[in-house]
Design a protein around this nucleic acid. Sequence first.
DNA 1: TAACAGTTTGTAAACGTTTACAATCTTACA
DNA 2: TGTAAGATTGTAAACGTTTACAAACTGTTA
Lengths: 342, 342
Amino acid sequence: MSRASIKDVAKLAGVSIATVSRCVNEPHRVRPGTRERVQTAINETGYSPNTLAQSFRRGKTHVIMVVLPSVGDPFFTAVMRGIRDVASDKGYSLLISETQFNTMTADEIGSMVVSRQADGIVLLASLSPFGTRVLSATSHRALPMVIGCETITDELASCPGVHIDNFAAAREATSYLQGLGHERIAFIFGEHKTLLTRDRENGYREAMTRANQVIDSGWVVEGRLTIEGAIAATGKLLAHPKRPTAIFCANDEMAMGCLHALKSAGLRVPEDISVVGFDDNRYAKITDPPLTTVAQPARHIGERVMQRLLYEIENGRSKDAEPEIVPHELIIRDSAAAPPKH
Amino acid sequence: MSRASIKDVAKLAGVSIATVSRCVNEPHRVRPGTRERVQTAINETGYSPNTLAQSFRRGKTHVIMVVLPSVGDPFFTAVMRGIRDVASDKGYSLLISETQFNTMTADEIGSMVVSRQADGIVLLASLSPFGTRVLSATSHRALPMVIGCETITDELASCPGVHIDNFAAAREATSYLQGLGHERIAFIFGEHKTLLTRDRENGYREAMTRANQVIDSGWVVEGRLTIEGAIAATGKLLAHPKRPTAIFCANDEMAMGCLHALKSAGLRVPEDISVVGFDDNRYAKITDPPLTTVAQPARHIGERVMQRLLYEIENGRSKDAEPEIVPHELIIRDSAAAPPKH
DNA sequence: TAACAGTTTGTAAACGTTTACAATCTTACA
DNA sequence: TGTAAGATTGTAAACGTTTACAAACTGTTA
C-alpha cells in the first residue's frame, strides 16, 4: 500500500486538492471549518507532502552543497557546525563533498550543481581544481555560491566570501616568534595551489624580510595539511644544516604531526625548539605541550558563510561582493618560547 | 533565459521527447543515425536532465542519509570515508545529520525520511533517542536502513548491521591490562543510553569478574565521549581514595582528554598510570605517549554498511538480518605498562 | 509481391504538487 | 431584499521526466 497523497486527503475530506494544498501552505486562506476537516483527514491518512514533488514543482531542493578539502580536519568540522546550525534552522540540509582524496571529479561536482541537486554551494576549498569548469557551465544560471576560509581567485571576482586576514595573521605569528628571539624560523605550508596557503606563506615571508632575516630555501617545506606530511616535513627540517629554532605550521593538524616528530627525535618543545600552529582546533589545548596557535572563529565563519548564501538564494546574486574579514587571534600557550642559547 | 529542457532538444533534433529520453537512458534502443542527431542537439543546447524531475518521476533521490553522533570525531569521519567511497562510486550523495548537539530533532529526522528526501538511511548512532518514532512512522514503508558500529535494539530486530564485537574487544583490552599486573582498573564510558557503550562496559566488567576483581563503583565514570567529559572524569578518578592504576576509555577521543588530564596532574604515562583507548583513530599514534588502543576497521565498516544498504535498496528489505561482525585488534603502543610498585 | 517479425519512433498519460483563474459562497450595507 | 465586495473554494494547467502502448517503418521469407 502506497503512501497517502494529496488526492487521498482531498477525497476523504470532501474538498479539492487545491484546498488541501492551501491548508498545508497557507492555512489562513482557508475557512476554519474546512481547515479542521482537512486536518483530521491528514491525520487519518498519515499524509505528509512528497518532498520530491514539491522540490520539482517549486524548483527548489532546500539542499546546500558544501565542498571542503577534508571532513576529517577538526577545523573544518567546526566550520561545518556553524553552517549546519543556520542551515537546519532555515530548513536546509547539507550535501557534503570532499575534494581531497575524492573520487568525485570536477565534472561531477559541476554537473551536480548544474542539474540542480542543490540550491546553492558553499566552498571551503580553493577553486583552482575545478573553478573554471563549474563557472563556465553554470555562469548563465548564476548559481548562488559563497566562499569561506579561502580567498577568491580572480576568475570569481563576484563571489562573496568570509575569512580571516591570513596574511596578517601569519605575519603576526611569525613576529611573535621573532619577538621571542627566534631568527631561524621555518614554515610548513599546506599545498601551494591553494591561495590560503600562499597568503599565510606570504605573511611569514613579509615578517621575515621586515626583520631583515633571509629565509633559507630549505626552511619552507610542504606538509600537505596532513599529519603524515608534517612528520616528513619536520624530518627534512631537522636534517637541514642550518636547523631552524622554530617551526610555524600552516594548520594545527600539521602542528600536531610536527610536535610528534620533534619528540620522536628526542627534542623538547619548547626548550629545544618552538612550534606555532594555525586554526586553534579543538585538540590544540590538549597537545603536549599545549599549542600556541592562531585562532580562527571557525563556527562563526560557518554561520556567516551560510547566512550570506541564504541571502543570495533569497535575493539573487549580489554584485557588490566584498569579502567579509573576521577577526583572528594569536593564542599563546606553551609550545613556543625563547630559543635555546648555545 | 531558462535551461534547455528535453523539449528543446527534441524540437531541435526533429524527434519526439521520448526519443531524446531514450537516447540518454538506453541509447542502444535508438537507431545510430537519430542518436547522432539528438546528440548534437544535446550538445548545442547544453541540455542536461533536470534531476529534480527525474527524482520525482522515478521516485528515487540517489541520496543517502547518514545519522551519526558527531561529525567531529575522527573515528566517525573515517567510517564516513568508507561510506562515501562506495556511495559516490554508485552515484549516491550523502546527506549528513548529527544527533548529538543537534538542533534537528527526532521528528525532523523522521519526517525527512518519511517524506522521501533520501532513498535509505545509515545509522551510526544508537537508536534510542528517536528509534521508535521513526519506525512507527515509516514501518509500513520499510525504508531501507542499515546500522553501523552500534548494535541493534530489540525494536529493530530486522535491521542489518555491521560492527565489531564490542563486548569481546573491551574484555580483551581489560585482560591485557590485567596481564600487565593491574588490579585497579577504571572505565570511562560514553553515554549510557547507547548500546555500544554498554557492550564495552559489560566487556570490561566481565574481564574484571573473571579475574575475581571487584569493581569499586567510583571507578566507572561517564565521559560523554568528549575530551572535556574525559578530563572531568579523570579528575574524579584521581580524587578517588582507591585511585586506579589504569584507565580504560571507551573511545580515543576521551583517551586523549584523559592523557592530558593525567599529565596536567603531574602523572607520567605509563610509568605512574596506564591508559588504553578504543577506536585507533588517526591521532592515536601521535599522542604522547602513543596510545594503546583497540582498533576498529573504520573505513571498512563504512564500506560494508553502505554496500549492504545499497543491496537493500535494490533488492528490497532482507528479512534475515544477521549482523556482520568485523574483526577488531588490540594495538599495543606505549600508554600502558606494568603498574608502579609502591 | 505479400505477409510477417522485428526494430525504431511517436503519442499520451502519469508522477504529486502548486497556482492562476474562475466560480461560488458570505457578509455587510443600502 | 438586492447588490457589491470580499472571502473561500474548485478547475485545470503546468513543472520535466519516464514509459506503456500503438504506429510506422525495415528487412526477410515464401
